[in-house]
Amino acid sequence: MELNAKNLEFRELNRQLRQGGSVFHITGCCGQRFIAAGMDGKTITIEGIPGNALGAYLNGASIEVLANAQDAVGDTMNDGQILIHGNIGDAAGYAMRGGRIYVKGSAGYRAGIHMKQYRDKVPVMIIGGVAGSFLGEYQAGGLILVLGMNRGGAPLVGEFPCTGMHGGKMLLRGDVTGIRFPRGVCPRPAGEADLAEILPELERYCGLFGYDRNQVLDAPFTLITPDSGNPYRQMYAAN
């Protein structure tokens, strides 16, 4: 179903998404927030730039954005898929518990903050370019992968990655010298078994965005996991 978003308020846009069929092609999108909030069973392609909180609480819907997206993509997402062909703003995937966010370009601050996992739900966020500061802050589960493709001189990640990380894993492609990791996480070169585990996701990602799989794999990867699941255990005295 074609949906021209020009001059539509977000409330009306979402109302039409909820009411109509299951496959949508939105054109003329210009900053409307909360697109597809909480939705499942929809496949939505977006031309133009969606506003903040795209796919918040997403519950199984599939969203593809042909350009950039703004802040809070996939906030508290539970299931589904968000593909972004450009870059994304800050706090993408805040507390996401399931589903996938694939970004062809780069991410702003706080990508994957407080990402979780639960049973069969293991969220995946793959960022093709670089990520800003506080990447994976408080990460409690899931997989965050930053590839650093076509980054020129830009740093792979900003300051303070993995601060407060207490679950899940992060993989960084390329040279990580100079990146300062906090105490409480263990960065180490990823081995064959580690890469084999993420290979299906990575191949899927490369296929969707036209990256060369072999070129992507032809670089060192660093795996970061938390030191312990309970980082604050010793902090308190009962009173």
Binding site: R97, K116, Q117, G229, N230
Partner: peptide, 12 residues
């Protein structure tokens, strides 16, 4: 809470 057993539940 939808988090694994034994994992800390941290509300920032």
């Amino acid at each position: 809470r939808m988090i694994p057993e034994g994992s800390d539940a941290i509300s920032p």
